[in-house]
Design a protein around this nucleic acid. Structure first.
Lengths: 237, 237
DNA sequence: ACGGTTTTCCGTACACCGCACGGAAGGGGT
DNA sequence: ACCCCTTCCGTGCGGTGTACGGAAAACCGT
């Protein structure tokens, strides 16, 4: 029987699958970076891969899976090559844990700023991916080396993590609102006016709050130092 | 002209509007409590009010508005009747700020547990509603009375707030996963196995992490004490 | 060489979503 | 009696996640 004319034969099937979990996850990260969680949809993701929407479901069983995978993927961008291995018997100076922790959360903040959709996803779902676990392991290891253990260690870890994600979440939110330069001045002014108009109702807020020209870097460090001081009180150093 | 038969006359129009912002917001809180953010939709909300979907838009310009209003509404459930007004000149004992803060964040946690959808919304949007502002005012006031000011005060406030919302977010997440008793044992075991199987890759985590039988109340207090100790180091008391 | 099985891809369809638009109906003012 | 304004909402449009089933290529045993 003669072949059908070329024109009707369709694209030849590739030897190896065109799609893969890696490609899907990478595209998902790109889409999330570009459009945020709200702008993320399976159809749009498929379009980015020049694929049919339902093809994605060969590799993933639900949209939630893609979000889980994308989240863990970007958590892998945190550099874990620290200098806190079991060093010489002399050991690092007391308080080396503090530097190590500062470096780690600085990395975390960098990643969460590069991918502003991350903070909203963390805390919503269990973080059991390999990179999430590696990050937790890092924090636990540093705190254990600092002399903490048991509930105290867990509490310290949760204090640090909650602070970092909470801070960056609001930081990202404010940055996003000020992104559009047309809105920026307007937002600053209207927020300021909103507060000023209620200065009598919220005196402490009006006297001390300056969201309109916050220095996020310095603010982050100061809050972090508070948490770290609290931990230091439990290490004996 | 004769009236049309009663049967065709339709329901009589009420003198006063049947809907109101208050009713809508109250119903929204109920729906969010029952179904979570994912299960919340304008259609379902309207159904709860026996109203047409589009009727809601007479009172609200978008779904986002409803979420903003519902969020601020439940923040109003935080009891602000504290004992920290400008008391006698003798003033409260040094460290009274600590008790006041503990009471306030305990209230916050209670509200966020009663309305588990709250933590996910906080941090996503600017909190400028009256109840949100009142809550911030409360924290700022306590910290100012403790002797903090300027950037230090702001950092302390953000450390406390981030810790509380972060902790309760993950607390709620774990509680939700363990809600269904059928899944609970399974989840506990599978999570445990997941970690145990990787104990060599994550030694510190395996040695110290016990999410399967966490005491949230105690854990919350311990992490909070860490943050509060860090603040105490800045008050001179 | 060939038939069957498995893998990969995806079109269609369904139930649901937010919300723009325009109309209907009743109340109040003149 | 007239008109307008407030309140209510049906319809429709363009989007969503994903269940289902089919088509075709690749692989494999004979």
């Amino acid at each position: 029987m003669a072949d059908r004319p070329v024109w009707l034969r369709g694209e030849p099937r590739r030897r190896r699958p065109r799609l893969s979990l890696e490609r899907i996850v990478a595209a998902a990260v790109g889409l999330l970076d570009a459009e945020g969680v709200d702008g993320f949809s399976m159809r749009r993701l498929a379009a980015r891969l020049d694929a049919g929407t339902m093809s994605l479901y060969e590799y993933v069983s639900a949209k939630e899976d893609v979000l889980d995978l994308a989240l863990d993927a970007v958590l892998g961008e945190i550099d874990l090559s620290g200098t806190d291995g079991p060093g010489g018997t002399g050991g690092p100076g007391a308080g080396a844990w503090r530097d190590a922790l500062v470096r780690h959360v600085t990395q975390s903040r960098r990643v969460m700023r590069a991918h502003p959709w991350v903070p909203a996803l963390v805390g919503t779902r269990p973080l059991l991916g390999p990179n999430a676990l590696a990050g937790s392991e890092r924090v636990f290891g540093i705190l254990a080396a600092a002399g903490l253990a048991g509930d105290e260690l867990t509490a310290a870890a949760s204090a640090v993590s909650s602070y970092v994600t909470g801070f960056v979440a609001t930081e990202n939110m404010w940055r996003a609102r000020m992104r559009d330069p047309a809105d920026e001045a307007d937002l600053r002014r209207s927020t300021h006016e909103h507060l000023a108009a209620r200065a009598d109702a919220y005196p402490a807020l009006a006297a001390h709050s300056r969201p309109e020209n916050a220095d996020f870097d310095a603010g982050f460090r100061q809050g972090l130092d508070i948490v770290l001081d609290g931990i230091a009180a439990r290490t004996g150093s």
